[in-house]
Design a binder for these strands. Structure first.
Lengths: 143, 143
DNA sequence: GAATACTATACCCGTAAAGTATAGTTTAGG
DNA sequence: CCTAAACTATACTTTACGGGTATAGTATTC
């Protein structure tokens, strides 16, 4: 029940780009350095974010990465999904092989977890990187 | 971002006991058989639930397991915590070693994930095993 | 006191997380 | 058009953990 390290790094990287400004190209080198992310691992992460349509990449001299759309249109959920695929609290929610034990179609655990999963997705979707960037600029609020 | 198999089994086991009735002793053998859980693995799981104060165990001939308190006082959250420890969406929320990158105390990612985690805990806590048991008895509702 | 049923540790194996390495492709600029 | 900069693709390594099994032990009932 935990996000993995790569996803956490991805949050920092996207926030970094959001702070630079939408469309502003930043090279991996500087993201890695300032966010303390191992360079090669960051590049791997960035490729997932590119595939997910969250950032754009620019190759060659003067290249780098930039947000593919405004920060207020990128949520935590978008990043989690780009990094880890669709969220699923329990594989039984998605793979019928794991849900046919004894109650088959009408399993109450299944139903309850479905609601939990929706709540989780909604919570993740309610935070945009514009909000987060604001949080940084506003200074310490120690939530 | 997924509950593990042991936790899923634990849900089934606790629900099984809830259906038997609070205080009603059921032996592991029959839980394992009816819920399709490997016997020895189930015993391991039950020990976590005992430690977590969710079920009581009875040794010796005629022994087994029973809910330690009424089903309406046991939530999905209780079981998750008994099985996996306190939920934490990101280790940075709990281990300062993982949160001091660049923004140190006032990290906006940290704050946002804190809210997500609260939402998740609340969603899990909103389902009791009395509710789930009702769902079973009510028959297929296909949520 | 023997059979039953849970307890405690410790072990095993496969897979995935986390990170590294090597080779390749695109682009800017001289 | 060649070179260096910067991302891409793939594959590999290492470690940890999930999922499960095995062995020996302890309590309880009859």
């Amino acid at each position: 029940m935990q996000l993995n390290q790569a996803t956490d790094y991805a949050f920092r990287a996207v926030l970094h780009l959001a702070l630079a400004g939408t469309g502003q190209v930043v090279e991996a080198q500087s993201i890695a350095r300032e966010q303390s992310i191992p360079m090669r691992f960051l590049l791997k992460i960035m490729r997932s974010l590119v595939r997910g349509g969250i950032v754009r990449s620019y190759r060659g001299v003067g290249g780098g990465f930039a947000l593919a759309r405004p920060a207020q249109e990128i949520t935590l959920l978008d990043v989690v999904q780009a990094m880890e695929g669709p969220i699923r609290v329990n594989r039984c929610l998605v793979d019928p092989r794991y849900c046919s034990r004894h109650w088959s179609q009408h399993c109450p655990v299944h139903q309850a977890l479905g609601q939990v999963q929706s709540a989780l997705a909604q919570a993740l979707a309610s935070h945009t990187f514009a909000d987060l960037a604001l949080g940084v600029r506003a200074g310490p609020t120690r939530g």
